[in-house]
């Protein structure tokens, strides 16, 4: 099965890539198809905390895209209350088998760092982001402090 070898290599690469934006890359002990990654955005208002992201790979990975969701609550125009978001790189339409999890993580990070209020999932948050950015920053920062994980030392 090509999925196992590929996932093992990707897991190794992701753990050792030395990028500071994500840490604690782990997979379930008995299930190579389920990973968690701690995302560390570097821009305000999310740079005070860490966000746990769950990645579930389909059995026919890499021919089908992984499902990625936030397990930590995040106040963001493009992420809903259940942690779901729309990332073009992992949609069925755009997915390519050579796309690496590392690329997916980088795409997710850039979405978090640079919200896209023109394609919001939470219209209310997007409106606040555009019309009252000060208030948005304050709410998001409080939300981060309250719900996000601690950033590793």
């Amino acid at each position: 099965m090509s999925a196992t070898r590929r996932l093992q290599k990707e897991l190794g690469d992701l753990k050792n890539c030395g990028v500071k934006a994500y840490e604690n890359v782990e997979c379930e002990e008995t299930n190579l198809l389920k990973w968690t990654v701690l995302l560390l955005p570097d821009k305000e208002p999310y740079n005070k905390g860490a966000f746990k992201v769950g990645i579930t790979f389909p059995v026919d990975y890499p021919f089908k895209p992984p499902k990625v969701t936030f397990e930590t609550k995040i106040y963001h125009p493009n992420v809903d209350e259940e942690g779901k978001f729309c990332l073009p790189i992992v949609t069925a339409e755009n997915w390519k088998p050579a796309t690496k999890t590392e690329q997916v993580m980088m795409a997710l990070l850039s979405l978090i760092n640079e919200p896209e209020p023109s394609h919001p999932i939470r219209a209310d948050v997007a409106e606040e982001f555009q019309k009252d950015n000060k208030k948005f920053m304050k709410t998001a920062e409080e939300h981060t402090r309250k719900h996000a994980e601690k950033r590793p030392e």
Partner: peptide, 12 residues
Amino acid sequence: GVVSKAMQCLAE
């Protein structure tokens, strides 16, 4: 699959 798309190169 359900999505009807062109058969393209496998690179991102």
